[in-house]
């Protein structure tokens, strides 16, 4: 899979730590230390994911982002921001960033978010596999432990949503939004029934579909006790 990542981060220590970890995980990582350099590199080369610090010297992260989106480039962008740069973060999402992380973050979480973003952008082509459940977005089919599942359209849509956001909380309103036509809404009871059915379908696979009281649902590979 060897996706190409681009990191724009001005703190040398943090950037070195990140690049070497991400390389270790198996990504190809390029790194720019300021906004001007980041902008130049992004104009010349294509990447699968951009990790962008908001407080870059020179051109700021937001400027780099709006230039990128201005060129109609759809590469997913993950924003890194300090917790108190809230308004910048909101502006970043408005400008077309796909997700954000506040510093300091867990390396695992950064990689989970990066994986999710890559998965979503590659969803049209690539297979996604979590805990024995494999999703083929192109064929719109799911197999559990190698056996293809027969799913209704709604069941498939729900499972796809959960798998593409694996490791993250998916709220009922997100589910309703994804599964219904605009203007329609799914009742909480209908969602619960649907989730119950999907859970039964993937029973036996090392994957957990957790109900989070009041928050929604979360799908993740089963934890090793």
């Amino acid at each position: 899979m060897n996706a190409r990542l681009f990191l724009a981060e001005d703190d040398v220590d943090l950037a070195q730590g990140l690049t070497s970890s991400l390389r270790q995980t198996g990504y190809a990582v390029d790194w720019a230390v300021n906004g001007d350099e980041a902008d130049r590199v992004l104009r010349e080369q294509a990447f699968d994911l951009v990790i962008l610090d908001l407080s870059l010297p020179g051109k700021g992260g937001l400027e780099v982002l709006s230039a990128l989106r201005g060129r109609k480039c759809a590469t997913p962008v993950l924003i890194l921001s300090a917790r108190d740069e809230l308004s910048d973060r909101v502006r970043g999402l408005d400008l077309g960033a796909d997700d954000y992380l506040t510093k300091p973050f867990e390396l695992d979480e950064l990689e989970a978010r990066a994986r999710a973003l890559l998965r979503r952008s590659q969803a049209r082509s690539a297979h996604v596999e979590i805990g024995g459940v494999t999703l083929d977005p192109a064929a719109r089919c799911v197999s559990a432990n190698g056996v293809a599942l027969e799913l209704t359209a709604r069941e498939y849509a729900l499972l796809e949503l959960l798998m593409l956001s694996a490791g993250q909380v998916v709220s009922k309103s997100q589910i309703s939004e994804r599964l219904c036509a605009p203007g329609e809404e799914m009742s909480a009871g209908a969602i619960e029934t649907l989730v119950h059915r999907v859970r039964r379908r993937i029973e036996g696979c090392p994957v957990d579909l957790r109900t989070l009281r009041g928050f929604g649902y979360l799908l993740e590979a089963a934890r090793l006790a």
């Binding site: 703190d11 220590d13 943090l14 070195q16 990140l18 970890s21 510093k103 300091p104 390396l107």
Partner: peptide, 16 residues
Amino acid sequence: RTPLAALKVQIERTLR
């Protein structure tokens, strides 16, 4: 906070 974030990433990397 920034050096702390960097330190954290370095520790996690070494931990791996």
